[in-house]
Design a binder for these strands. Structure first.
Length: 459
RNA sequence: GCCGGGGUGCCCUAGCCCGGAAGGGGGCUGGCCUGGAGAGCCAGUGGCCCAUUGGGCCGCGUGGGUUCAAAUCCCACCCCCGGCGCCA
């Protein structure tokens, strides 16, 4: 039976494809040759080992059938074969471990439509939506960010405040300084209207996505390491995952992780796919190696809430689902009236698990830049191979494809709303689509968020 | 945290005391049978390696150990369930 992971198949049948993919990612290709060499050697040795074990088993089965007094010679032979088997087993085990270590480090084969390039400067915008507000001072930057596209915009004669200053100094509804004192940088307090706004955003996104047939899920917020390494590569794991001291438990960086791992070991039949889920959970991220980036405000923080779309699909349908997921996210940001663009992420900027990734980047008027709010990835069979999530097709087994896409991450969306819907007087307009969810609460804002007179906590 | 029970193929279960090729049931898939359906019967239903048909190996929570031979005996660990305690 040919149960193949695409990367392993390529390794044996078409290593050039694998090397091309690595080159596109700006990664070394010598590992492929090493892996091929180890794989060939491993297959040689395991065949040899199997033959040796067969012989040993034959002798062992013979022993109980002859009279005890005649067994001595055969027992000696069996002992000898046993020793040889043990030796060879150790060698095979070593080879297997070495091979698997390399295999586990190999990333997904990138899709042909992924742009080449070593880093995010090679990401390719594919479409723009909305009419961005552009302060005069950011016009240059806007032109650069929209190069090659005709994007209609609204020129502002005033300077909107950056989301961080607007939130903390103008609205006075956030405090990262007090939070830093107690918990460290990249933590925050949010107050009053922003709290309601966050709740409404979560409900709204959950509402939109669940209506499309995605099953709502609240997952465990911690996972064991074994399962964690089934959904993410070691690099990401080290840089972003918090560990619970003294236990084999890790705080989730996104509900994608427990939602994908939810089907570890499962075998689907065709009729059961696609499986659609919408996860809601807090996300915890160490943000190691991002010192100095986005240090103000709540754009880049250690914890936030996120509504996440997850799809388990048949292999031949995953690319179609990839498009659908990003469209779902677009629907949400269109409803929130936030101008954005979709970018196709360059191969060199892709995580190991993803074969292709779109980001939805919202326009930030005060920064004069498009910034990432949504990531939408097709992980093909990278995660399902590790977690053994299969599709049983009349006896033939394949690995399912897994996809994930942000529907809405609260903190970044709040930042985008605060900058895009900011008025000259410092108030912030609330997108009409949230009204329904705010209506439920008497003290929630309805049409606009108005600055507080005084700060709630002392400096 | 303490005490007890348990982990066998997709699911359930026998085997464990007393070591000698993992048996039964269910589900699913295919075939036979049928006017059709059902029942019945047969086969398949974990992973890996070699190969043209086919053959072999591994696998009974994990890792060690004893033995010619381990699901079975020994040691360590992990996980799940129940009870008690603690607790929002």
């Amino acid at each position: 039976m040919n149960l193949g992971w695409s990367v392993l198949e390529a390794l044996r049948e078409n290593p050039e494809v694998l090397k091309d993919s690595l080159r596109k990612r700006y990664m070394p290709t010598d590992l492929v040759d090493k892996a091929i060499e180890l794989d060939i050697k491993w297959r040689e040795r395991i065949t040899e080992l199997n033959r040796l074990r067969e012989k040993r088993n034959e002798v062992n089965r013979l022993i109980p059938r002859i009279p005890p007094e005649e067994r001595g010679k055969l027992i000696e032979e069996a002992k000898d074969l046993g020793r040889k088997v043990k030796e060879l087993e150790e060698e095979v085990k070593k080879l297997d471990e070495e091979r698997n270590k390399i295999l586990a480090s190999l990333p997904s084969i990138v899709h042909e439509s992924v742009p080449e390039g070593p880093d995010e400067t090679y990401n390719v915008p594919v479409r723009f939506w909305g009419k961005p507000k552009v302060p005069r001072s950011k016009l240059e930057s806007f032109k650069r960010e929209t190069e090659g596209f005709q994007v209609e915009f609204e020129l502002l004669d005033w300077e909107p405040k950056g989301h961080a200053d607007e939130l903390e100094l103008i609205l006075k509804m956030g405090d990262t300084y007090k939070a830093a004192q107690l918990s460290g940088s990249r933590f925050f307090y949010l107050f009053k209207d922003i709290v309601w706004l966050e709740q409404a955003l979560v409900m709204f996104a959950l509402d939109v996505i669940s209506k499309k047939g995605f099953i709502p899920v609240i997952p465990p917020y911690m996972l064991r390491q074994d399962y964690y390494l089934g959904v993410t590569d070691l690099e990401t794991f080290k840089d972003s995952i918090y560990k619970i001291e003294g236990e084999d438990l890790y705080l989730i960086a996104t509900s994608e992780h427990p939602l994908i791992a939810m089907h570890a070991g499962d075998t689907f039949v065709e009729e059961e796919l696609p499986r659609l889920y919408v996860g809601v959970s807090p996300c915890f991220r160490k943000e190691a190696g991002t010192h100095g980036k986005d240090t103000k405000g709540i754009f880049r923080v250690h914890q936030f809430y996120k509504v996440e779309q997850i799809v388990f699909s048949k292999p031949e349908e995953s690319w179609e689902w990839h498009e659908r997921l990003i469209e779902n996210a677009e629907e949400i940001y269109q409803a929130l009236e936030i101008p954005y663009r979709i970018v196709n992420i360059a191969a060199g900027d892709l995580g190991a698990s993803a074969a292709k990734k779109y980001d939805l980047e919202a326009w930030f008027p005060a920064q004069g830049r498009y910034r990432e709010l949504v990531s939408c990835s097709n992980c093909v069979d990278w995660q399902s191979y590790r977690l053994k999530i299969k599709l049983d097709r009349k006896g033939r087994r394949e690995f399912v494809h897994t996809l994930n896409s942000t529907a809405l991450a609260t903190t970044r969306t709040i930042c985008a709303i605060i900058e895009n819907h900011q008025r000259e007087d410092g108030s912030v307009r609330v997108p009409r689509v949230l009204r329904k969810y705010l209506e439920l609460f008497d003290s929630a804002p309805k049409d606009e968020i108005v600055p507080l007179e005084e700060k709630l906590i002392k400096d």
